[in-house]
Write a protein that binds this DNA or RNA. Structure first.
Lengths: 216, 216, 216, 216
DNA sequence: GATGAATGAGCATTCATTCAT
DNA sequence: CATGAATGAATGCTCATTCAT
């Protein structure tokens, strides 16, 4: 796509190239389905090739191994989310964090399976997707923020991680539990917490003492 | 601790029961080590039994399979954290959320490997450890809170999940990255965010427009 | 029982000897039950010792291995049948073959499980039970028979085997099918066949031709 | 038979289908050899695959487990006997029982190992081979017989079983003992017994009384 | 003698990967 | 390019047997 599709050669070699690309896509689509259904570890190459309706050997013509296709599924899925978030906020001159967060909620909701898949791989994904979209975004905003007090600049990674943790849990409500609340309401709630923290009365002394040992 | 407290209890079950218990412990200790080092999926029974210096067959005398010992390692590890948190806050008449959170940071820090292990199992753990210690604790506090506005009572599970997400990411800083910041500083930071949210200037319009597509 | 129970020593050493004998009996009874229920190959030593309510180690104090107890169960079971057949025909001065056959049907019916057990072991039983009770009996009668024509004396083993096959199948009707017909009726039927063969019309041309290929 | 009859059917499924079939056959041939030599229970998958000169994994490409290949070996072996008996008697318009019995003796003799193999599996064979070829054949003849007296029609299964028992023992003379007498002589003997029963003098009073207890 | 915890050889089974067609 | 039969290393698990108590 980037090496061969030069100038006027583009239309000139649909020989096997188009076929090849179609096969590859079948595999990616199938893999996404299988990984979502069975998780990285329980998925087998055979399951994927069967779902893709291609021979087992064909798999290795397109991907080095299971990890490779997993990373590709993930990378392409995340890239799609990234792109669509970009499109959603494209009309804004200067998108604020709330606007971006809201867009992310929309797009992640639309592609919930990718989040689930990411989880099942845990340490597998060669962290190839970089520091993660969320970390990246939050870091950017944090770096541009006028005043971080009472936090220091060294704490930007920590703050980004905490923001990510917040959103991550919100996403989780969607993956095997219910589809509610929808992305807009969810964004409201999370943004409120991001801005103002949790309800103040949470931090006051509990009225009624509760049994310590089982308290935790 | 278990060898000396027999003074007036010696009659328990002297036979091979002690030997049996010791072997079981070896296996648990070994499994914890192996799971922490290699993750749930890559760990093998043989690795565990070798680390425990017992025969393979012995494993099956004590645990049905890998999943069983994994759940036990986790359950006992989490129970230990739970207990120690309880002890740490035992002197408080009415421990407030910040006190409890601080204690949790202390104890989780002291047993960081359990957190790492928990993650590698992902969907494996038969969620036997219930709704998780953190969820439990936060839910309790949220239910006792005088005023949750602007949140409703139905949103308690969501709020608990968000609080958990915050702490979870904090724990993560410890698991393959560095051991810094220590639990006390970490607790300060996280509690600040919990109480007041993130720095306000984060939510203002960014001064300098930034390149949209790659913005995300 | 036969080596130590001499004269007045018999009562003199019930120290551990009686206990030992009782344990051994528990094992034999348990093994008979387990072999009957699960067959030789699927039975495990542990199952037997649990059924006998003794420790695993105890097993090896009494029997060398699984095969040994199997052979013992079989040998003692067959010996019991043998003995009881002997008792049943003891009052006869000169028991004829029909009388003996009838007694065998009675006693085998009473201990059907032994027949089932024998089968599950197939080649295992170190053919220790000799040529089998039936072979032995039939051979004896055949050797005493005045006239074997049209068979020769060399064919006695074959004839004995055929007689055994007849009875064996009769026994089989009892083992997982029904308990009918009872031993007396069965003896009638089998003895009739032994004496006169099968109904003559069986050997005439079949009236209606039947489809050859599927005929067999 | 399968390689030459392609002349006008070559289009079937040329690819690896032939290779696959050849491998499957190797496995079946090897399994037959191994089961005959070591019995069902002592045979291992590895032995079979080594004898077939294929990898272990290949086995599972063709058969679910040991039981599956055992049943296939048996079913195909019995089917072959069935077919060849059918061919042997094909020229007869109306084969009588003696003719069929004789043919069975011929064919079973030619494939003695199948009988041995069947025995070693005992309860394993999912009785998939139906009620057995012999039972089937005898039942058919018995149902066509004009006169069964003194037996009733309800006793047909018993009679079939007894006939089977007779032949079964005859087959047995061949399986670990000697190859004598050959199938023709054997058929003579067995058919004689079927028609006329055993020598009459067997049922007369024994001249010499014999020692009762050990008599059996 | 009795016990049962421990042992480990041995077997079944899976699945990523290769390669001849 | 595509195929899918073949491969075998790797792993889980069982169970007869031993031996310290």
């Amino acid at each position: 796509m980037n090496q061969k599709s030069e100038s006027h050669q583009q239309v000139k070699q649909p020989r096997g190239a188009r076929r090849r690309a179609r096969t590859r896509d079948s595999l990616l689509v199938a893999a996404r389905k299988v990984f979502a259904a069975r998780g990285y570890h329980d998925a087998t190459i055979t399951e994927i090739t069967e779902a893709a309706a291609v021979g087992v050997g064909t798999f290795y013509l397109h991907f080095r191994d299971k990890e490779a296709i997993f990373n590709t599924v993930l990378a392409e899925g995340l890239e799609a989310i990234r792109r669509q978030v970009g499109e959603e906020i494209a009309h804004e001159d200067n998108p604020s964090l709330p606007v971006v967060v809201r867009a992310i909620f929309h797009q992640v909701y639309a592609q919930r399976d990718i989040i689930r898949i990411e989880r099942t791989g845990e340490g597998v994904a060669a962290r190839s997707s970089g520091p993660g979209i969320l970390m990246e975004t939050f870091t950017r905003f944090l770096e541009q923020a006028a005043d971080l007090s009472p936090f220091s600049e060294e704490e930007i990674p920590l703050l980004a991680a905490l923001l990510e943790g917040l959103m991550d849990r919100a996403f989780h409500c969607w993956w095997d539990e219910q589809d509610e609340p929808g992305p807009d309401l969810m964004a409201d709630r999370v943004l409120h917490v991001m801005k103002h923290g949790f309800p103040a009365s949470l931090f006051e002394e509990p009225q009624k003492p509760f049994f310590a040992p089982s308290a935790l």
